[in-house]
């Protein structure tokens, strides 16, 4: 399966990729989405840089999860196209992995099997997938919990399992749909810090959906602000937070606070 991902990368410059910027892992071209009588997204154009963490931020109902799921190939767009590594998306693919808001863990399977599940579906041998799963379970800080079941874990730990599962399939693009919304505040902060560290280690493209401004500014290289329904891109912000500083320093940094405030001022129009 990794072989398949590699071929995808190799063929990147061919075909429609010529239109995409060479360093864009994901290119969104004129995506519109209309449900029976609700227009959710209108004319989204977006390049998502390889190796960066991009956040889709916006008020509830702006269609940010819809956009993410269109990129994931879980929902069909009404018009437009999505290119991943230069190839048009027609459904889910091995080069993308999804982390779900409600974790989507198999309650009847252990942490080990859950993390290895993506590999199991690909027909990897038991030893191979367990070896890989063990590595990523350790990487997300759950070593020792391999034989536990999801109901024996806290919300934060469950989401780590979901994250490890996404990492284990070795995709280029990791998509996270409000991964911390079902997690308590303390866990959430710890998780955000881990995410930043993980991004350094894994060198993958992260695409992240959230409705928390602070979270977006804290973790992102780039923030894509979506307007209310029908969702359109209203602004793209690069927070330029220096992640070498300690988390506490960042959270007190005037630049960080100003960015949060200016985004809030921009969004205010939509919620008032």
């Amino acid at each position: 399966m990794t072989a398949m991902a590699d071929t995808a990368t190799l063929t990147r410059p061919a075909g429609p990729a010529a239109a995409a910027k060479p360093d864009a892992a994901v290119s969104v071209r004129g995506i519109c989405k209309t449900y029976t009588d609700v227009e959710a997204l209108r004319g989204i154009d977006l390049d998502i840089e390889r190796g960066k963490l991009t956040t889709l931020l916006g008020p509830s109902g702006c269609g940010k999860t819809t956009l993410l799921k269109i990129i994931a190939g879980l929902i069909d767009q009404t018009s437009g196209e999505v290119l991943v590594n230069g190839r048009a998306v027609r459904g889910p693919g091995p080069e993308r992995a999804f982390v779900f808001q409600d974790f989507a863990l198999l309650p009847w399977a252990t942490v080990m099997r859950n993390v290895a599940f993506g590999l199991e579906l690909r027909g990897a041998s038991k030893t191979e997938r367990e070896e890989k799963a063990r590595h990523y379970i350790a990487e997300v800080g759950l070593a020792g919990f391999e034989d536990k079941y999801p109901h024996e874990l806290s919300g934060g730990m469950r989401q780590r399992v979901g994250l490890a599962r996404a990492l284990a399939v070795d995709a280029d693009v990791l998509m996270l749909d409000e991964p911390f919304s079902a997690v308590d505040e303390q866990t959430r902060r710890k998780f955000q810090e881990d995410l930043i560290r993980l991004r350094e280690v894994e060198k993958k493209t992260f695409l992240f959906v959230t409705h928390s401004i602070e979270e977006a500014v804290y973790v992102s290289d780039r923030i894509v602000l979506l307007s209310r329904r029908p969702g359109r891109i209203s602004e793209i912000i690069e927070p330029k937070v220096d992640h070498r500083a300690s988390p506490d320093e960042i959270r007190r940094d005037p630049h960080y606070l100003d960015t949060v405030e200016s985004i809030w001022q921009g969004l205010r129009n939509y919620v008032e």
Binding site: K69, L74, A97, L106, F117, G118
Partner: peptide
């Protein structure tokens, strides 16, 4: 749950 099914699809379950 819809997300379990989506999870299967996104990890390319037959």
């Amino acid at each position: 749950p819809k997300s379990l099914e989506e999870m299967g699809r996104s990890y390319l379950a037959s």
